[in-house]
Design a protein around this nucleic acid. Structure first.
Lengths: 161, 161
DNA sequence: CTTGGAAAGTCAACAAGGCTGACATAAACT
DNA sequence: AGTTTATGTCAGCCTTGTTGACTTTCCAAG
């Protein structure tokens, strides 16, 4: 089912794969460049952006949840979270049922910065989507999903619910 | 040409863009995970991989060329290049016409490691391409290209020649 | 033939953001 | 009462990015 089942798949030459790899590399740079500039002005880095993004996405999420999504150690995340809380962008509320948990929320200031970052990144994404067309977008999403680790893909799908 | 030319483009909701952003983030993690594991065993990092990749791609390229492609400072690149040369994976040949330039080449050992990294990354890419199908791949590429900085897109196109 | 400037390399210092390991505390569970 | 879980924190290390200053080499133009 592979030898000739891949009628159109014969085009998967070494060179094509290599170009796909390079496209990912260069595109990811573009993808992060706008938020990076904004973060820089505020003295933050990409790690802060990621935390803000996912707290905004799932308000009330716990630290453990966030660790699983971000795939970093708690020490690494804590360093970032500590500064965001100290700067009044994030709030950690003690859990109602389980009081060990901290439920993370953005403050008004946190929402403001997240929006600014999000707007910049979304603007580029929108431009790319428009330029490529709706069918390209569907393909883009399918390939990206197929590229994720299965475990991560599940979390990704859960977020999109 | 934009106001209503986007018949199908009305679907660009905030939520869709957000999912695209998350897909990029998670997919990039998958994209780098296999090479990362191999690099770790050799005591190298992603920066070494990038250097090996582009030297392999454009044998005889100069340090300045590489700097432009990688978008880092020469000090940063030099540190990586120095270890690769010391470890006998890369060779820097003095330029024939302009003897200030170093023309970079992989040694046999360099080619071996690059292949190992490349094979791992290509395997994932191939699997994702097959799973998503040829039309999705075309769309994937179009969106990625539209996401790059224009300057970078030109370099990307030049590489693909 | 001198001099300006480009290409390359090096040293030092610093920061972000990963990591490990060890340990503390509070709360929940058994 | 004892164990497990969630979180936080200290200390230290690594990679990989940065800036700034400086040197060496060497081409090319005056």
């Amino acid at each position: 089912m592979d030898g000739q089942g891949g009628e159109k798949l014969l085009f998967l030459t070494d060179e094509q794969l290599r170009q796909g790899i390079e496209a990912m590399f260069f595109a990811y740079r573009g993808f992060t460049s706008d938020p990076d500039r904004i973060l820089d002005q505020h003295g933050y880095g990409r790690a802060h952006h990621r935390a803000l993004h996912f707290i905004n996405r799932s308000p009330g999420t716990t630290v453990t949840n966030l660790l699983a999504i971000l795939g970093v150690t708690k020490q690494s995340l804590n360093r970032v979270l500590r500064t965001l809380i100290a700067d009044g962008l994030v709030e950690g509320r003690v859990g109602a049922q389980d009081r060990r948990e901290r439920h993370l929320h953005l403050t008004a200031a946190g929402v403001a910065l997240e929006s600014q970052l999000s707007d910049a990144q979304q603007a580029r994404m929108r431009q790319a989507y428009r330029q490529a067309g709706p069918e390209a977008v569907a393909g883009f999403r399918r390939v990206l999903e197929a590229m994720m680790e299965p475990e991560i893909r599940r979390q990704y799908a859960r977020l999109a619910e």
